[in-house]
Simulated assay, not measured.
Amino acid sequence: MRTRLSVCRRKRRFAGEDAAKAAALAATITLRPYRCDRCFGFHLTGRTRGKRSL
């Protein structure tokens, strides 16, 4: 699924996957990092259905 540009602009961008994983593990809710196809950085998502957890 392609990320909408308006969603990409609202989300925090991480330069690397390691930084995104660290932020996801530090969060109080379950989050998963993914590479954005718009900015080519990493964002976090709460959609974890059918995906591997950290």
Rank of each mutant, 00 (worst) to 15 (best):
R32D: 06
P33D: 12
R35V: 03
D37R: 07
L44N: 10
G50T: 09
F42S: 00
L44T: 11
T30R: 12
R10A: 06
D18C: 04
R49M: 14
A15F: 01
G50I: 13
Y34P: 06
G46C: 00
K21S: 06
A15D: 08
I29V: 14
A27I: 12
C36Y: 01
D37K: 05
L31T: 04
D18E: 12
A26R: 12
L44S: 11
R12K: 10
R38V: 13
T48E: 14
G50Y: 14
T30M: 14
A24H: 12
A26G: 09
A22M: 04
F42Q: 00
R35H: 05
C39K: 01
A15H: 01
G41K: 13
R10T: 04
T30F: 13
C36D: 03
D18A: 13
A20Y: 10
K11P: 02
D37W: 05
A20P: 11
E17Y: 11
R47Q: 14
A15K: 06
R12I: 08
F14A: 02
A24R: 05
A24I: 09
T30D: 15
R35M: 03
K11R: 11
G46P: 05
F14V: 03
D18S: 11
G41L: 08
R47E: 15
R38I: 13
E17N: 14
R13K: 13
R10H: 02
D37I: 03
A27H: 15
I29P: 00
D37H: 07
D37N: 15
A26F: 07
R47T: 15
R13W: 11
L44H: 12
L31M: 12
A27P: 14
R35C: 09
A26N: 12
F42R: 00
F40G: 00
A26T: 04
L25A: 08
C36H: 02
G50Q: 07
G50R: 07
D18I: 04
I29K: 13
P33G: 13
R12M: 08
H43W: 04
T48W: 14
C36T: 02
A24G: 09
A24F: 06
H43C: 07
T45L: 04
T45H: 03
K11I: 02
R49Y: 14
A24Y: 07
T28P: 05
C36I: 09
R13H: 10
T45K: 02
L44M: 10
L25H: 02
R38Q: 13
H43P: 07
R12F: 09
T28I: 02
A27W: 12
I29M: 12
R32N: 14
R47A: 15
T48Q: 15
H43L: 09
R32Y: 11
